[in-house]
């Protein structure tokens, strides 16, 4: 009969108590440790590396860890610990800002898969730039003639377009993730193109939102 191996309980190098499962702090003495190499935003928020995320649990994690890393708790500690609390807090905020936003999250995942940026591959779907030019002209026209009805309609149509893009993006990511870890070059190029289109649409949504006031 094989002797059962005793799972090794990580021990804190400082207090020698059990440090718990989290790589960045000791659960016994609260001491902070540096991030492991290749630690990602997903690791920072303790969430699986996938496009479909539960954003409410993301927020919960943010709150828990923000308290855990808060520089106020480390003000009296040695400077290395103070520094780590600052670095971890900043990285945590960056992780949350990135993963909370579905477009930023998509960009980040694509980056982790080794995909290219929008300046390296600017392609958009056929006919898309023509459509954008047309929408920009419409927006300009409505703004010049102060046509708040046209602006509101344009803004609503753009929001709908943005929603459709997000649905498509979610589907593309699910397809890629279902077919194994590595994304194929073709699938990544398709996602790149959808994200490029999203950048134009998001800009238009932004530019059309500040220009009209809802009637009161």
């Amino acid at each position: 009969m094989a002797t059962p191996t005793i799972p090794s309980i990580p021990v804190c190098p400082t207090c020698h108590g059990p440090r718990g499962a989290h790589p960045l702090f000791c659960a016994s003495c609260q001491r902070l440790f540096p991030e492991p190499p290749e630690w990602t935003h997903f690791d920072r928020l303790g969430t699986p590396r996938t496009y479909d995320l539960d954003t409410s649990s993301l927020e919960q994690q943010l709150f828990n860890l923000t308290r855990r890393f808060h520089p106020d708790f480390f003000a009296g500690k040695e400077s290395e610990q103070q520094q780590l609390s600052l670095v971890h807090s900043a990285s945590l905020n960056q992780a949350y800002a990135t993963l909370r936003d579905p477009f930023e999250r998509a960009e980040y995942l694509l980056h982790l898969w080794g995909g290219v940026t929008s300046s390296e591959d600017k392609r958009t779907p056929p006919g898309f730039l023509d459509e954008m030019l047309g929408l920009r002209e419409k927006l300009e026209e409505a703004r010049v003639s102060n046509d708040s009805g046209a602006l509101a309609a344009l803004h609503a149509a753009l929001l709908e377009r943005q929603r459709r893009l997000l649905t498509e993006l979610g589907r593309s990511f699910r397809d890629v993730e279902k077919n194994g870890a590595g994304a194929g070059a073709e699938a990544m190029a398709a996602i790149r193109m959808a994200l490029n289109a999203a950048k134009y649409i998001n800009g238009l949504v932004r530019d059309s939102s500040g220009l009209h006031r809802p009637e009161v």
Partner: peptide, 13 residues
């Protein structure tokens, strides 16, 4: 010639 830059959303004709 119609071109654009996704980073800034610029469209140029």
């Amino acid at each position: 010639g119609l071109t654009g830059a996704p980073e800034c959303g610029d469209v140029m004709k």
